[in-house]
Simulated assay, not measured.
Amino acid sequence: MYKDIFKSLREAALVRNNMNTRRTTDEPAPLPQKPYPEDIKLIALPEPDFLEDKEVSFLELMELRSTIRLYSDQKLTLRELSYLLWCTQGVKMVLPSGVTKRTVPSAGARNAFETYLYIDKVEGLTSGLYRFLAIEHALLPIDTSAGVKERLRKGFNKINMFDECAVTFIWAAVLDRMDYFFGGRALQYLFIDAGHVCQNLYLASYTIDVGCCAIGHFNDEELNRELGLDGEEEFVVYAAHVGKIR
């Protein structure tokens, strides 16, 4: 089964290598960020320029970076959350074409991910589901109702980590952004890009004494449904729990 799936993906990539993708046409490129209602009040995050600079030995970072699965009840500060978001999807530059240059590598600078967050323990924030707006460096509240945690926890298999962590990062791909540029190779590049993003989260977490655990095994249908994604054009690719270390 898996060999057949892999073969299909490779065949699609090879075929599209010899074809023009939509970027060679007059069709406009997809937006670099999903729109949001103008009347919703955003939550501004501390500006990256004012975040505390973290000095760390690169060799120490490589050697001591690890997966942490146990978290304390201590809350993250808003500044710490801002730092982690900046390190994983921060926008360094918006080009005239609308393309964004960010703090992580992305094939063709497509940056096809939207970062959703279940925030449970962050100072000054109501627990609930949010979306990170990378261009504005702000949070968009989506659902802060009492039942949102219970609904989202159905999407995860290791419930103890979801329950204990301070924040769960959920990266959802907007396929059209990558397909526009790369056609049949879009899926390959999406999963490669996801690795870049989560590795930055691991490294940034270590510098502020925060634990991180990447989550690749989750219940796709449950998470896609709770995030309002169709599972085909937009779908969850990767997730991670973070929290203060016990």
Rank of each mutant, 00 (worst) to 15 (best):
D143V: 02
N157E: 01
G108Q: 02
A138N: 01
K244R: 14
D26E: 15
D230A: 05
E52H: 12
T21L: 13
F156Y: 09
N200A: 05
W86N: 03
L125Q: 00
A138W: 03
Y2D: 10
F113H: 06
I135L: 13
I142W: 10
I192M: 08
L223M: 05
F162Q: 01
Y238R: 04
E226V: 09
E27S: 12
V236G: 12
V242F: 04
Y238E: 01
Q33Y: 12
L95C: 13
E60I: 06
L229S: 02
N224K: 06
L129D: 02
W171P: 01
T168R: 11
W171K: 01
Y189N: 04
F235H: 08
W86S: 05
A173R: 03
G195T: 02
N111Y: 09
Y189G: 02
F182N: 01
E164H: 08
Y83N: 00
F181P: 03
A107C: 02
V15G: 09
P105W: 09
L76K: 05
T25W: 09
D220K: 08
I68S: 03
D163E: 14
E226H: 13
N18F: 14
E233G: 12
K41N: 12
V122G: 00
E60N: 13
V91Q: 00
F191R: 03
S106F: 03
R65L: 12
V174T: 08
L14C: 13
I215D: 06
D143Q: 06
L125I: 07
R110W: 07
H217Q: 02
E136D: 06
L190N: 04
E80K: 02
L201R: 10
A109Y: 07
D39F: 14
P46F: 04
I68T: 07
K3R: 09
D230L: 10
V15C: 04
C165L: 14
T126S: 08
L140G: 09
G211R: 03
V148C: 10
V242K: 04
C87G: 06
K101M: 11
V15E: 13
T100A: 10
R16A: 15
K7E: 14
P28Y: 14
S145Y: 07
P35M: 15
